[in-house]
């Protein structure tokens, strides 16, 4: 669904949401790609995001926050060119193994089902450079759709 008449791309939409969401910016998140089938997002390893100071492993919460945001962007990619706010209903993450300290992680999120009021999202996170191998975390989430008008007001 590529329409050259639409003056903005899915990548623009995702970058725009990163710009406005301060906490995600603070995490150092970066959008790598944004297509109809999903979004790819990177979270750097940073000392202030560490959960265990004795090992240097990233905190599960930092990985969670990045994935929750990636899920929202997956919704935007699916809803493109329309724009809606999609608050999270529920989110479950499994931490399969700890990412190597010092290594960034990359999340792929896809909205695999869109209904009138709810979106269903699947997410996988790998250590950067090991996207073909075992994921570090997988997640399933649902979000609710809040349609907004031109003035940014919630319609339904």
């Amino acid at each position: 669904m590529t329409d050259s008449k639409i003056p903005y791309t899915r990548m623009d939409v995702c970058n725009r949401s990163l710009e406005t969401v301060k906490h995600s910016r603070n995490l150092g998140m970066e959008v790598l790609s944004a297509e109809e089938e999903g979004v790819r997002v990177r979270l750097p390893w940073r000392e202030d995001l560490v959960g265990n100071p004795d090992t240097g492993v990233l905190h599960g919460g930092a990985i969670f926050a990045m994935m929750d945001q990636a899920g929202g962007m997956a919704n935007s990619c699916r809803l493109y060119p329309n724009f809606e706010i999609t608050p999270t209903i529920d989110f479950r993450v499994d931490h399969l193994h700890a990412p190597t300290p010092g290594k960034a992680v990359v999340c792929h999120a896809t909205c695999y089902r869109l209904t009138e009021h709810v979106t269903f999202v699947r997410l996988t996170t790998w250590e950067e450079g090991k996207e073909e191998g075992e994921p570090v975390a997988t997640a399933l989430a649902t979000y609710t759709r809040m349609k907004i008008d031109k003035n940014g007001r919630v319609v339904s």
Partner: peptide, 11 residues
């Protein structure tokens, strides 16, 4: 941010 709240609860 929902992620900040979640991280807070996990910690």
């Amino acid at each position: 941010h929902g992620g900040a709240v979640a991280g807070f609860m996990e910690q």
